[in-house]
């Protein structure tokens, strides 16, 4: 008698569902994007304050910035270690990142202009994030295009002989 696995392939796949769920991917991307945007926003507000701030205010800024950084770290950890982001997901996530970085940059620049501190530092930092997000988006598109090309080659292979 041949020994067999107690868990069938179907059961194995079902147990993988939680890692593959759309909700998990959305949560991971949201945590990373919101964490990074929040960090930039809080840091910009903090650095844009005129004069020396009271100790409690500085502590509050530091805590809020650290809180946002923690969320960004959690999102990054999820995306690199826990949640598989396939090629199409990566394209979508990268464009969400582009949109979020541009929105955050605009928001921070507007706040800076309103305070009269000048939007240049905010635009510089936000621009860096936007360019990074754009680079990731281009890479994600290239990766997906390469996979689609390979899929067409493999699919067409047998017919072409």
């Amino acid at each position: 008698m041949t020994e067999e696995a107690r868990r069938s392939a179907r059961e194995t796949i079902e147990r993988l569902e939680s890692s593959l769920s759309r909700g998990m991917r959305v949560r991971a991307v949201a945590a990373l994007v919101a964490g990074l945007s929040g960090t930039v926003f809080m840091a910009a507000l903090w650095l844009g304050e005129d004069g020396a701030l009271p100790g409690r205010t500085r502590l509050a800024f530091a805590l809020l910035t650290a809180f946002c950084l923690a969320w960004a770290g959690y999102g990054g950890w999820l995306l690199t270690r826990r949640v598989p982001l396939f090629a199409t997901d990566q394209v979508i996530a990268a464009w969400i990142g582009v949109a979020a970085s541009i929105t955050t940059t605009a928001l921070v620049a507007a706040v800076a202009a309103q305070r009269g501190t000048g939007p240049v530092p905010a635009l510089a930092v936000g621009g860096l994030f936007a360019v990074t997000a754009l680079t990731l988006a281009v890479r994600a598109h290239r990766r997906r295009a390469a996979l689609l090309r390979r899929m067409r080659e493999l699919t067409a292979g047998p017919e072409d002989g």
Binding site: R7, T12, R15, S19, L20, P84, L85, A87, Q90
Partner: peptide, 13 residues
């Protein structure tokens, strides 16, 4: 075996 598949799915991309 289940752990292996979890690692495979996470690393496949």
């Amino acid at each position: 075996a289940q752990e292996i598949w979890l690692a495979v799915v996470r690393g496949l991309p």
